[in-house]
């Protein structure tokens, strides 16, 4: 055995251990540790005159308030509702896009996917600000509507919940399109021919074959949009109206306006619990998708 070979042989188990270790280390460093810190803060007492303004006590006062005050439950429910509607809007926009790309000639798919992703090379904030410019009273959209003579007084979309849905749909579109594309693209085109051959009109073939087969993509895409949308802060704050109660804003208020770290942490912990169900669902769907392959 040559010297080089021996070194490789001895180095290999260590290298393998490191390879396995790295993701765990990553998780420990950037998920488990921060999570533990936030959990500990959430159980502490708010003491405004200390740095930082929290004393670790395990009192859990923040949770008592979280349960006792209807505001938080209302904020969570409203966030879930807005995220759900926004997810459906994103799905309705994203599905036809993913479908078109998956059915496009092979040479076109790369550039089309690129076009979906390309806007994400500019800053998220700048893109949301751009939407403010488009949707405002004297913004681009209304100028076009008025200029076309179709509508005299189009009203203002900015500041409504629909602006939030639009913003979320725009910002999270790739997270919807990519999993949908993946599940649609791997679908055998012969299946649709088989359906047609057996008497299915195009819409029936879509409903009975394409749709069920893209279900893993739909579930994946929807959860990838839904989960972050629940905690979304910037889009509702900038595009939404004042009256939109969302948990992200409540959290911001707890942390920044009140400076109440334990309460803010408790709100964050509760959000995680609320999202556990969809996350588990997502993992199941992925596992099933992988197994089905």
């Amino acid at each position: 055995m040559s010297a080089t070979a021996r070194t490789v042989a001895r180095g290999a188990p260590w290298g393998r251990a490191a390879t396995i270790l790295v993701p765990y280390l990553w998780l420990l460093l950037f998920f488990a540790a921060p999570f533990a810190i936030v959990a500990a803060i959430s159980l502490g007492d708010y003491t405004p005159d200390t740095v930082p303004p929290v004393t670790l006590t395990w009192s859990g006062k923040a949770y008592a308030l979280l349960v006792g005050d209807a505001l938080y439950a209302a904020a969570y429910l409203n966030s879930l509702r807005i995220a759900a509607i926004a997810t459906i809007v994103t799905l309705l926009i994203g599905y036809p896009m993913a479908y078109t790309i998956a059915r496009a000639p092979a040479g076109w798919r790369g550039p089309l996917l690129m076009a979906v992703i390309l806007p994400f090379w500019t800053s998220f904030l700048i893109r949301i600000y751009a939407w403010m410019g488009i949707l405002s009273e004297n913004g681009l959209l209304n100028q076009v509507l008025r200029g076309s003579g179709l509508v005299d007084d189009p009203g203002t979309l900015l500041g409504t919940e629909w602006a939030i849905y639009l913003g979320i749909a725009y910002a999270y579109l790739p997270f919807m399109v990519l999993p949908l594309y993946a599940s649609l693209e791997k679908m055998d085109a012969a299946l649709l021919e088989a359906a047609a051959d057996l008497g299915a009109r195009p819409w029936t073939a879509f409903r009975t074959v394409t749709l069920p087969l893209s279900l893993p993509g739909i579930v994946g895409g929807c959860l990838l949009v839904f989960i972050p949308a629940v905690g979304e802060f910037v889009i509702p704050d900038l595009l939404g109206g004042t009256g939109t109660l969302m948990i992200g804003k409540v959290l911001w208020d707890e942390f920044f306006s009140n400076g109440d770290w334990p309460m803010a942490s408790a709100v964050a912990m509760a959000m995680l619990v609320v999202l556990v169900a969809p996350i588990v669902l997502f993992q199941r769907a992925r596992a099933r998708d992988l197994a089905g392959r």
Binding site: L71, A74, T242, G243, T244, L245, V250, D253, S257
Partner: peptide, 8 residues
């Protein structure tokens, strides 16, 4: 303030 803004 939160209640005012959200109409509660």
């Amino acid at each position: 303030w939160t209640n005012i803004k959200t109409g509660r």
